[in-house]
Nucleic acid binder design. Sequence first.
DNA 1: AATGTTTGCTAACGGTGTTCACTAAAGCGT
DNA 2: ACGCTTTAGTGAACACCGTTAGCAAACATT
Lengths: 250, 250
Amino acid sequence: MTKPQLDRSGVRTSRRERVREATLAEIKEIARRHLVEHGSQGVSLRAVAREMGMTAPGLYRYVSGIDALLVLITADMYDDLADHVAAADASVPEQNTDQRILTSLRAFRGWALEHRAEFSTMFGPRNRLDPDSDITAALEAGRRFGATFFTLFDRLVAEQRFEVPPDDEVPADLASELRAFADTVGVATPNVPLGAVMVLSSCWVRLYGVVCMEIFQHLNFVMADMEPLFESELRGVLERVGVEYRPPPE
Amino acid sequence: MTKPQLDRSGVRTSRRERVREATLAEIKEIARRHLVEHGSQGVSLRAVAREMGMTAPGLYRYVSGIDALLVLITADMYDDLADHVAAADASVPEQNTDQRILTSLRAFRGWALEHRAEFSTMFGPRNRLDPDSDITAALEAGRRFGATFFTLFDRLVAEQRFEVPPDDEVPADLASELRAFADTVGVATPNVPLGAVMVLSSCWVRLYGVVCMEIFQHLNFVMADMEPLFESELRGVLERVGVEYRPPPE
DNA sequence: AATGTTTGCTAACGGTGTTCACTAAAGCGT
DNA sequence: ACGCTTTAGTGAACACCGTTAGCAAACATT
């Protein structure tokens, strides 16, 4: 009988499973560094294996292929982003909803700026992630990321901060989509009006759009600094949901 | 003396140059088909060469590498998109500005839906296009694409369709960026107020955002059909610039 | 101690981008 | 028509890549 230890989640974990978990973590760590250093194209099983003193086929004991590895680290990156945003949110007094939202959204952009390669693989086209590979992990991590914002948004709805479009102003086809969205994404407040979800979607689209434009460098030769445009959109979004905008510090 | 013929642009073109142009066109055509059939990853010099009965090194007489080839076809794709939007625009009576805008914007999304792979390489992260390779061609094509919308937008400004924020509501740092934007992108109307450019940017960000979200499949497991959300954003955008929204036909 | 399981290796196949030396052809000037 | 020059394209080679199959050593369990 070997020494069965307990995971922090209470799962009995043998020595074998622990070392296995460790090497898997090493694989992901190296792969991710290659991602940020050489872009999405620069992640290769052989290079990762080489760096950790292994050969490429050995990695197949841990990962079912290069695409699956990318999905794995994508999930980790969502976790990172979620942590970063949550930390920024937590750095503001809990009752100060306005400042919390402002800070969280700026933290989102800030993380994107400092992690361009990661952001691109997370929010860009799903080129290599498409196959059926366990994308569920990445999805779950993405859901956790969104939760921070949804929680804050719930407060705005509860506090009736902004004018919510009445239900009869939401087209029927959009209504059913929004319902599905609110359900799967897990908006905390039950019976949140569909109009509010519509506003939320619109706000998210705007911020997603402006950050993608910046990271994907779509106005690169047309606009030197994208921060003013982001702040402008941020201001517009916050105005829409009844949150006070304040210019960024210094 | 050989037979010097005249290009339609008036450039003397020898036989050699003509056949050269033809094979370059073939290269791009095949590469693009591979792009739509096998995704961005599935474009390879060797495969293209194989299909046209050549060997890969031969292609280096026409293209300086695989990345440069991708940039080349990206420029072509912008041309295609521009043509598609322009055709949609031209299919509406010239005086009907509202319908022209509505149709053009829907044409943008429609093209994206029917050309997902192309759209992804055009509007997604610039992964393989980054190196200094003559990206100017793609930029120019992108500029032509935007021109259609800017022309229509100019009419809205000229007709004073919507409320333009006064200049003192445009932050100073944003103002200079917007000026650069208006200049390089070539907004036709001289002295177009900066507030109008700000509104234009905001509208474009929203539409870009919602279409990217759809094509990049970011709400795939959360929303079955993205059209209602697009139409909702479209409605909001048009409302902002004083254009009448009409639901899509049928 | 013997048995089964997991891990990692080597070898191999087929694919990729790219460079270099080289041939054969096409164009050009006389 | 003849040479000379430029060009298009080839073949071989190098260095990568993902992935599969078979095998040997390490490990865990009985």
